[in-house]
């Protein structure tokens, strides 16, 4: 019998074609039903396994829902103060240049309080990778407005919908960072359908490979559903993401220095 995880076994004659990635811990997450974080964690772990870098990857988690990412991903981890993950990752990478270092950040963390840190990590072309999870609100603190919240979107701090006259306009991080010379690989993906999940994984893998090649700073923005924050069931949240977020936040590759 083949051991797939510590709980499952495969019957003789059957072949394992899909299992839990080795670097993903066999525990239940604290994420809400329909949340995108679980999927993205898994994609990260699949990439880490496929690149065979579990033993030399160091993660930096943010303040936000994914603050406990080290409970699920079995590698060395630091958590960071709100928004400072790129600075912390800079300190780690400059001390351990042969390791693969990534930050995992949400939109409140990265696009509001930590905007200076992410922009300057990109400016310096730090050889780190950022996984930027955009769900258009502050999930952990209870669904407040984020810089990425859409015009008209209701949150607990925009109870009548985001009004640009009061709160300005949604911030497009991928487009913003595409103007920074230090960025070597940058794309925006989503995890609302299987096809897009597969595409997202490819991009994460490329981003890590670019870091490992010593090219410079890479970032993958991922549109991710937040059913609890948005106040809707998981299936509805995926539809809402497609209908409302995607027109504002176009998917695709924004920069790849290897393609000239």
């Amino acid at each position: 019998m083949v051991e797939v995880s510590n709980k499952m076994t495969v019957m003789p004659g059957l072949r394992k074609i899909y299992g839990r990635p080795q670097s993903l811990k066999d525990v239940r997450t604290h994420y809400c039903p329909g949340c995108g974080h679980g999927i993205i964690h898994r994609l990260l772990c699949e990439v880490i396994d496929e690149l065979d870098i579990q033993g030399r990857t160091i993660g930096v988690s943010p303040v936000g829902c994914s603050v406990f990412a080290f409970d699920y991903i079995n590698i060395d981890f630091a958590d960071s103060l709100h928004g400072r993950a790129p600075a912390v990752a800079t300190g780690i990478k400059r001390s351990q240049p042969d390791k693969i270092v990534f930050t995992y950040q949400g939109d409140g963390d990265l696009a509001a309080i930590g905007l200076a840190e992410i922009v300057h990590a990109a400016v310096r072309s730090e050889k780190i990778t950022t996984i930027f999870v955009n769900n258009a609100n502050y999930g952990m603190t209870g669904g407040q407005m984020a810089p990425t919240t859409l015009i008209g979107q209701k949150t607990t701090t925009t109870p009548f919908g985001r009004d640009h006259r009061e709160c300005g306009y949604p911030l497009r991080i991928a487009e913003l960072l595409a103007t920074v010379e230090g960025v070597v690989y940058l794309c925006r993906e989503a995890v609302d359908t299987s096809a897009r999940v597969i595409q997202a994984k490819k991009s994460i893998k490329t981003a890590f490979e670019r870091q490992m090649a010593g090219d410079g700073f890479s970032l993958v923005e991922i549109l991710s559903p937040c059913p609890s924050g948005w106040g809707m069931p998981p299936i509805k949240a995926r539809e809402w993401l497609r209908e409302n977020m995607m027109p504002q936040y176009k998917l695709g590759k924004f920069k790849d220095t290897r393609e000239g």
């Binding site: 960071s80 600075a87 001390s95």
Partner: peptide
């Protein structure tokens, strides 16, 4: 802010 957090990382 960034400097002290880089120190934290190192």
């Amino acid at each position: 802010l960034a400097a002290i957090n880089m120190v934290y990382g190192a």
